[in-house]
Amino acid sequence: MIFDDFFTRALIAGIGIAIVAGPLGCFVIWRRLAYFGDTLAHSGLLGVTIGFILNIDLSLSVFVISGIIALLLIVLQKKTKLAGDALLGLLAHSSLAIGLVFIAILTTIRFDLMGLLLGDILSVTISDIIIIWFGGSLILLVLFYIWKSLFAATVSYDLAKAEGMNPEISNYIFTVILAGIIAISIKMIGVLLITGLLLIPPAMSRNFSTSPIQMMLISIIGGILSVVIGLFCSLEFNTPSGPSIIVTSLMLFVMSLFFKKGMTIVQKSKI
């Protein structure tokens, strides 16, 4: 069976992640949530540790912990006057630190720390693939459902609120599905680099896009290309999967910059 090959498993898992990461990443960029995504991802390590301690599925524990951290952030934002970025840093680094302390204490459990931080294609199992594709479809369905309200709130919260789009609810739901994508992609990409896959393909895509939908579709294509090329390089040069995928997406981004520059020159020469 094709799933017997670890590399095929990694490819299928990675493509699944890329399809979900594209649209979500667009919203992360549009709403300036890059550092927020980072915070959720860092708390993912704590989620993994807790998953090991309680012996439950890692995606589930990461999802729950990231979700809790996200809600905690929203509560703290209302309670304190500390600026948003300081709060994010506080939560990101303390949850990462707690996670690392736990890992050090748990000497009885064999732990591949590098794999968790940077992603490991060897670790992708068939059940991971099921979680990624099933969870990913669920995330996209939810996103599709809240799309109109979320997008209106992204452009202008006041406008969305005034014209009855319920932006608070869609904001909360978006936070939860963001925790969801981090949970399903942690094994593949790693805690440190997930935000990269969320951000870089949309950043690349922006240079080609004239409409929001277009930007999402091109992000998906960019994400898939990054995963496929990145994984082949990872196999070929024996590099960790997460960094290989991110480096590939960075190259695509740089190419898009040249494309944009070229387009500008062409447009100018027409005038």
């Binding site: 549009w30 452009v155 202008s156 406008l159 922006r206 896009s209 004239t210 409409s211 929001p212």
Partner: peptide, 10 residues
């Protein structure tokens, strides 16, 4: 209304 450059909005 401040529209972020990152949103390609026609």
């Amino acid at each position: 209304i401040n529209i972020d450059w990152a949103i390609p909005l026609r």
